[in-house]
Design a binder for these strands. Structure first.
Length: 573
RNA sequence: CGGAGAGUAGCGCAGCCUGGUUAGCGCGCAUGGUUCGGGACCAUGAGGUCGCCGGUUCGAAUCCGGCCUCUCCGACCA
């Protein structure tokens, strides 16, 4: 296929736009691939559409290969459907809403578990129909509070979402592994070295989940990875064993004056002890009760882990008056001597391993030395609720963990029966008994994936597409298209390449040579064929490879040019 | 939602502090001409409710108040 640049829409910019920070965002704008309509809402221009099409093709091939069937679900859903699972509430303001002319409340789909489960409950009756896997590539809308980085986090975005239905947990487990592998293939084929990490299912619910992360300094997310590569987890789910303090005799409680020491740092400094020899009190509120968390002073509470330990999804920081109501003194709060009714005391598992800690005395201006658990206070729950830090130990091998920024490209979940139970989607099992369908769901952010490919494949001059994703494989640049013989030569060579099955951009625009060279680099097209007067005088054209700038001159005829282009493309990796 | 910054021609910016002719520069765009291998040159020209609303003033891009939008950091986030 052959496209003439003079008749195509390729609005490039010379300068970096003021609104962009990330390389992918700047390059998408400069290369004329996207334009912004509003915060986090973009038009995909022709060059972008071509690349998206290639990414989508890879995704379709991999989904089809594991038995996925492509469908398209509606963008607009009745709000009632979302009320069935409780997510009309849970999603809150993220959900785009409007009323139709009859006054019925509608939502813009941020994801499609409810819709596919509605299909399933109407159509799936027997175990004989299972398993089933559906997927779609479609526009989603989520009114995120902070869109950022162009396509890295948009409010309106393209997503591949897939949903599978199974008769048993075992069948889901087996299929989940297939999807996991298919996802690795997809990212590999896009030229990305992603890391699968263990993740927290969060709002989606379910038992097990993995995120596919591309490490990047510009990532919108982060994860924890072991130096020995045997453990990777997202921040909300990461665990690390706590070190036991060296044995020391348990000393008697002792109250000490610590005027003006409202923070752990201040207390530790005032008393000359390290922060890890202190116990910190942190207060939360759930719909049911006040939660008093006791954690080692050098650690932070991981609210996702705490919520999971409490079996709740709703958790907020407590207000001062709620803290005071149970007899705790903010700034000097202590688990010793508080009212126990209506308070749940959660002790992080760092505390039983520590000895002789400094904790609040529940008295303005005083702390206690030599606090020991469980000698001095009791817990309703002992659990790991700490945020893992850079440098902590790996739970598998004891190696060092590091915190890496990353772009989350995909997320897969074993949903189990959360949606099928809420919505009454059942089937008759082999014994003829009705059972809720067992589900999995699988998402890839397609636009984010495209942005991630640019983050991973660019240089100072522009994008450097992997050959299989490039919008065109070759650009044939006619330096002086006003000369009929040069234009004719360029057209003939471009035609030859196109007839051989390549996607060719013929740059026949009447612009200076420099501008055309710069645009070709900005667009990231793998091979440039230069048709210029200098080489043409010797009946030659010059080829240049985008990735490394390697140049070669070949005879200006179809066959030698095709042959050389193919070689350069093949070595493009 | 908390913090920070920005909004002047299609893009990038200056002018604002210290109010005063017709609001400027570079790029881009249009027309004509000269050029033609790494973001050319000359000439002419088009293009602006200075984000919006209100106030102060003889006079506001400039000072004051309110609002809107966008960007970044954080919180949040399948």
């Amino acid at each position: 296929m052959l496209v003439r640049a003079s008749q195509y829409f390729l609005p490039t910019w010379k300068e970096d736009p003021a609104e962009a920070e990330l390389p992918s965002h700047k390059l998408l704008l400069r290369a004329g691939m996207i334009r912004k309509l509003a915060a986090g809402i973009y038009t995909y221009l022709p060059l972008c559409r071509r690349v998206l099409h290639k990414i989508e093709t890879i995704i379709r091939e991999e989904m089809d290969a594991i038995g996925g069937m492509e469908i398209t679900m509606p963008v607009v859903h009745p709000a009632e459907l979302w009320a069935e699972t409780g997510r009309l509430q849970d999603f809150g303001p993220i959900l785009g809403r409007f009323r139709d002319r009859a006054g019925r409340e509608m939502v813009l789909g941020p994801t499609h578990e409810e819709v596919i489960t509605d299909i399933a409950r109407r159509e799936i009756r027997s175990w004989r129909q299972l398993p089933l896997m559906f997927y779609q590539i479609q526009t989603k809308f989520r009114d995120e509070p902070r869109p950022r980085g162009g396509l890295v986090r948009a409010r309106e975005f393209t997503m591949k979402d897939g949903y599978s239905f199974h008769e048993s947990k075992e069948d889901l487990d087996q299929f989940y592994r297939k999807v996991y592998q298919a996802y690795l293939h997809i990212f590999h084929r896009c030229g990305l070295a992603v890391v699968p990490v263990e993740a927290d299912p969060g709002l989606m619910g379910g038992s097990e989940s993995h995120e596919f992360m591309l490490p990047s300094p510009y990532g919108e997310d982060a994860f924890i990875q072991c130096e020995n590569r045997d453990y990777a987890a997202n921040l909300e789910g990461a665990v690390s064993p706590k070190d036991e303090d060296p044995p020391e005799p348990l000393l008697p409680l002792e109250e000490v004056a610590t005027p003006g020491c409202y923070t752990i740092e201040a207390v530790a400094q005032f008393l000359g002890v390290p922060t890890r020899k202190t116990a910190k009190a942190v207060f939360y509120r759930t719909p049911k009760e006040l939660v008093f968390v006791v954690i080692r002073g050098d650690l932070e509470v991981n609210e996702a882990k705490l919520a999971r330990a409490l079996g709740t999804t709703e958790l907020w920081p407590a207000r001062e008056e709620e803290i005071a109501a149970v007899g705790a003194v903010p700034g000097y709060a202590s688990p010793i001597g508080i009212k126990r009714d209506g308070v749940k005391v959660v002790v992080d598992d760092s505390i039983p391993k520590a000895r002789n800690l400094v904790a609040g005395a529940n008295r303005e201006g005083f702390h206690l030395r030599n606090v020991n658990f469980p000698r001095d206070f009791q817990a309703d729950l002992v659990a790991d609720v700490a945020l893992v830090r850079d440098g902590d130990r790996c739970p598998r091998c004891g190696g060092r963990l590091s915190l890496l920024r990353a772009i989350e490209l995909g997320h897969i979940f074993k949903l189990g029966t959360k949606y099928s139970e809420a919505m009454g989607a059942t089937f008759l099992d082999r014994e003829g008994r009705p059972k809720p369908l067992i589900m999995g769901c699988y998402g890839i952010g397609v636009g984010r994936l495209l942005a991630a490919v640019i983050e991973a494949h660019h240089d100072e001059e522009g994008i450097v597409w992997p050959a299989n994703l490039a919008p065109f494989q070759v650009v044939v640049s006619v330096l002086d298209p006003k000369r009929p013989e040069l234009l004719a030569l360029g057209e003939d060579l471009a035609q030859g390449l196109a007839e051989a099955g390549l996607e060719v951009l013929l740059d026949d625009r009447d612009q200076s040579a420099g501008e055309k060279f710069h645009d070709a680099k900005l667009w990231g097209i793998p091979v440039l064929v230069v048709v210029g007067p200098r080489a043409a005088a010797q009946n030659r054209v010059e080829l240049e490879r985008r990735r490394d700038g390697e140049k070669r001159a070949v005879e200006a005829r179809r066959d030698p040019v095709l042959c050389a282009v193919r070689e350069l493309l093949a070595q493009n990796g």
